[in-house]
Simulated scan of single mutants.
Amino acid sequence: MADVVLVTGVSRYLGGQFARALTNDPSVSRVIGVDVIPPTHDIGRAEFVRADIRNPMIGKIIAQSDVDTVVHMNVIATPTNAGGRTSQKEINVIGTMQLLAACQKAPSIRRLVVKSSAAVYGSSPRDPAMFTEDMGPKSLPRTGFGKDSVEVEGYVRGFSRRRPDVELSVLRFANIIGPGIRTSLTDYFALPVIPVPFGYDARLQFVHETDALGTLLAATTGPSTGITNIAGDGVITVSQAAAIAGRAVIPLPMPAAGLFGAVLKRAGLADFSSDQVQFLAYGRGLDTTRMREVLGYEPEFTTRAAFEDYVRGIGSVLPGSAALGSAVSGVAGTAANAIGHVWAAGRND
């Protein structure tokens, strides 16, 4: 049972929400929130400590506070939230290494909960319909957040071998969505025109932010679960999601999708990378049997219901999206030319 809990990443939306929810649990006597900047939102009775998990100082905080449970939520999915891709990788990978080194040296640590991602499974045309926790990726993520998540889980496995006495829960979340959270995917579906890979209609799974918090609380105060997939029931396709959001779509061949992503990034509308284009082409499905049978959690929202709740909260379009109009026309022209070349090449084969 968790008593003194240290939570990383409390200045970000989900980390702050989780810290506040944890302070409402009577079984938890103390919650310590750690981040490099003070949170702008309410974290309840949690004590904020300004610290960088990349710094060995984190070890002193754990030792002095006699922390028995660490919840690592500071694995950042979006580079702009971290100040760029280099900072993102340093926080995700180097930060995790330092945090685990501190946990390894602390005899008081009894449980480690890690917020991971289903991005570790990658996205490819050879993927199974549903990934179970014992399956590996058919195509290993080579860039961005997916690659970071694979490395983070590798360091966590190493920690588990060195400290077999520590209970471990690694939660692999499908894309988290809801009215309050902002990610590259929520920005994507808030665009006035949604680019989609030409010839593809990927299956998507989502987990509502309420269920994300619920599973994190269950993993912190309930039984240890090991690696566990977290997602809402059912799937929706990219085209169905666009229709629910009331957005027009523009089909783009894969190379042009990368160009469009660069335009969106420069306009400050969405942070879209090559691994996300792969995801939108091939999608991903998660088997959540272990979430129910071992973690004991039944999600409140299905995938569709989670997306619909997100849509109710997005309003019309992202702020500043008027700047996208001319960009859409230019890239659409490029895409049309590229599609024409693809068709012409097909006729010549």
Rank of each mutant, 00 (worst) to 15 (best):
A262F: 15
K138L: 12
P137S: 09
V5W: 01
K89R: 15
C103Y: 08
G59C: 05
M130D: 05
T225R: 04
G122I: 12
I109N: 05
V10Q: 09
F272A: 03
P125C: 07
P79Q: 13
V156P: 01
A190W: 08
G320Y: 13
N348W: 10
L324E: 01
I58Q: 05
L280A: 03
E209A: 12
V113H: 06
V34M: 10
G122M: 07
D148T: 02
L204W: 05
E167G: 10
L14T: 11
D68F: 05
R203C: 11
F272P: 01
D3E: 10
A257V: 10
T215G: 10
P192Y: 07
R266Q: 13
D271C: 02
R290V: 01
D66F: 13
P195Y: 12
A218T: 07
C103A: 13
I314D: 07
A218H: 08
A106Q: 06
A335G: 14
G315Q: 06
F173L: 12
F173Q: 02
V75W: 00
L185Y: 14
G15D: 03
F206E: 10
N175Q: 13
A218P: 15
S326T: 12
Y310Q: 02
K265D: 14
P197E: 00
T143A: 11
L100T: 03
L252V: 14
I314F: 10
P195M: 04
I177S: 11
S123Y: 00
V120E: 00
G320C: 14
A267L: 15
A248K: 14
L295A: 04
P319R: 03
P255R: 04
I339R: 14
